[in-house]
Structure formats: structure tokens, C-alpha cells
Amino acid sequence: MVSTVLRRVSARAEPLLPIADDELILGWRNSEWTGIAPFLEEDVAFSSIAQNEIGHARAIYQLVAEELGTTADELAFDRKPEDYRCSPFVELRLVPDWAKTIARHCLYEDADQRRIQELIEADDPEVAGLAAKIDREEVYHRMHAQMWFERLEDEPQFQEALEELRPLVDQRGEHLPEFEHLWQEMTEVRRSVAGATW
């Protein structure tokens, strides 16, 4: 079982799992904008960023899965809610508040950049290599976040959103109540059909 495996989380997985979980859950949250983003071009762009984040989660899960004697799918979908290590910051359901969504996007990309940079400098060449690869995509996410920041920085609604969310960036710990519903939805297929793949 995955949960027992996670109790002896490897040295490699220890710092990587929270990152992968953050990317998976944020990707999930951002994808909730698909079809309802403020305008068509942004819908495509933001959905694509969400997809990238989930792709990064997948790559990291794959890297640690072998060591943990499991698979990327099992890590992503077969754990109990309490075994996910994502931060409450990415769990927040922000639809339909675009200002807050962009505020989180900006704050997250900023924090994520520092975290990825540390991984790029890691001694483990596989980790460093993957981090460098992920960062090449993140460059475009940061550009996107920066463009939106410049566009909204004078809006009081956006400034309030930044103030409200900033203290949550580095918070870890208890899941938010709304994580339960996300988990239910995200794991529904695998819970109905064990080992389902696409």
C-alpha cells in the first residue's frame, strides 16, 4: 500500500513530494478555469499552464516512484487525503475570483522559482536535471504571471488579494476543508476502478 510505503519516504522523495503535490493540486485548481476564463486567449493560456503544472507533478512522481516501490499514478491518485503534502495555499478554490487567482499565480511562481533553483543546484544529478527541465517551462509561466501583475498592480481588488494570500505562501500543515472535495473528485475514477489508466 502506498501509505505504508510513504512512512519510509526516501531522502530523495522527502523534499520532492511536497513540490509534486503542490504542482498537481495547483494544476487541478487552475484547470477549473478552463472554459470560463475572462477571455478565450487567456482560457487557452491558463489551461495550458495548468496542464504544464500537472506534467511537472507527473515527472517528479515518476522520479521518486521507483524508489518508493510505487508508480506515478499511485502517488497522484491512490493516497489518502492526509498523505498529500501540498500546502493549503494551493488548495484554495478561487473560482470565480480572477484577481485572487492571478494573485496566487504571481505569488506561487515567485516562491516556486526559488524552490526550483535550489533543486537545480542539488547534488543528485537526476533531480538537478529534471529541475532544470521544469524551469525551462516555468520561465513562460513567470512571464505570464509578470504580465498580469503589471496589468493589475494598480487595481485595489488585486492588491487586497495579494495581501490576503501572501502570508499563506509558505504555510504547511492541515488541509483546508475544500481539499476533501477536490480529492474526492480527483481520485473518483481510481477509487471506482482500481488501477484505471488512460
Binding site: 486567449e41 487567456e42 487557452v44 493560456a45 495550458s48 513562460y140 512571464m143 505570464h144 504580465m147
Partner: peptide
Amino acid sequence: FAEWYARE
């Protein structure tokens, strides 16, 4: 934004 969207 136009460049970003075009790339996408």
C-alpha cells in the same frame, strides 16, 4: 500578451 498567446 499577444506574443504569449500567439506562442501558445
